[in-house]
Design a protein around this nucleic acid. Structure first.
Length: 300
DNA sequence: GGCCAGGCTAGCA
DNA sequence: TGCTAGCATGGC
């Protein structure tokens, strides 16, 4: 790009409890990921800011995240959208000190939290993406779940090609709302998953499900509302509350990954029972989501 | 080749 | 109210 089209970047200060490398480890988990690209210590991502496709690059230095806009100069609204997205994505507004104070004396969390200090719950600010990913991941192995996600994006997402690289956004709820079940079956989604995902896309598209309304309710109210949606059980509800709605008390207690992480971390030789997990979690009140996320980190 | 996978629904007692 | 077969297929 020539110097005249180069745009002014943005800078977002990060909290003391922040480790970019730890966050990158999460984002680099799958080599099938199309929603962002990682090169060294830089992340490139395409964002759909109310119809405007904004491509940006994220890096970290000097206690701040740096955003550079690539390809073309976005509108002021586009820039603002990217800034809010990044703050939400990295959960920069949560003060982790109380969590760390609790974890320091918790026999289950102490080691893993110390080891990965500065890791933050890498979120999914887009509510439809969070639901779709939760449903896609139900009861299938993660590798296959990523394959399904990639196909969904390649078939129904938006993209921009810069040089040799194509950057993608997750399909909008509006796009998926207009599909028939058979169109997702072709991508090897099960009939059930196809029905669930299209159903939720329609709830979002017709305004029956609004993120801004959900985040203003209590955890109990939200759980009740989400579980009433076909295809959303307790695990998915808590997954969405944790990754998108940012309830730090969300707790997907039946999660197989959590069970395997506890088994490994505690050297149990078997997966813990739900009752045992409830016992471990007695001191985690208010921070169950962070406890879960740090334990997931063990499995990477 | 068999068990497991970041579960959920619907139908049954 | 509580229990569980069936889903649907890939990964390892």
């Amino acid at each position: 790009m020539d110097s005249e089209t180069k745009t002014q970047g943005l800078e977002i200060p990060t909290p003391k409890e922040f480790n970019f490398t730890e966050c990158l480890a999460i984002l680099g988990r799958s080599d099938q990921e199309l929603l962002h690209t990682i090169s060294g210590e830089r992340i490139t991502k395409l964002l759909n800011a109310e119809g405007e496709l904004v491509l940006f690059e994220l890096s970290y230095s000097g206690s701040a995240l740096h955003i550079e806009f690539l390809h073309r100069s976005p509108s002021e609204q586009g820039k603002q959208a990217v800034m809010w997205y990044v703050m939400d994505w990295f959960d920069l507004e949560t003060d982790l000190q109380p969590f760390y104070a609790m974890a320091a004396s918790d026999p289950v969390l102490r080691e893993v939290v110390e080891q990965h200090a500065g890791l933050r719950i890498m979120g999914m600010p887009d509510l439809f993406e969070a639901f779709a990913w939760a449903i896609t991941g139900q009861q299938i192995n993660l590798t296959f779940a990523y394959t399904l996600k990639r196909r969904l994006i390649e078939n129904f997402g938006s993209s921009t090609k810069v040089g040799e690289v194509e950057y993608w956004t997750f399909p909008s709820a509006g796009t998926i709302a207009s599909l028939e079940v058979g169109q997702l079956r072709e991508l090897q989604f099960s009939g059930r998953k196809a029905e669930y995902i299209i159903g939720i896309a329609r709830e979002l598209a017709n305004g029956h499900l609004v993120k801004e309304e959900l985040v203003s309710k209590t955890e109990q109210q939200v759980e009740k509302q989400l579980v009433a949606i076909r295809g959303v059980g307790p695990w998915s509800a808590h997954y969405v509350m944790m990754k998108c709605l940012r309830f730090n008390s969300a707790f997907p207690i039946s999660d197989v990954g959590l069970h395997n992480a506890l088994k490994e971390q505690l050297g149990m030789g078997r997966k813990p029972t739900i009752a045992e997990i409830e016992g471990f979690a007695k001191n985690w009140t208010g921070w169950q989501a962070y406890a879960t996320f740090y334990l997931w980190r063990v499995l990477l």
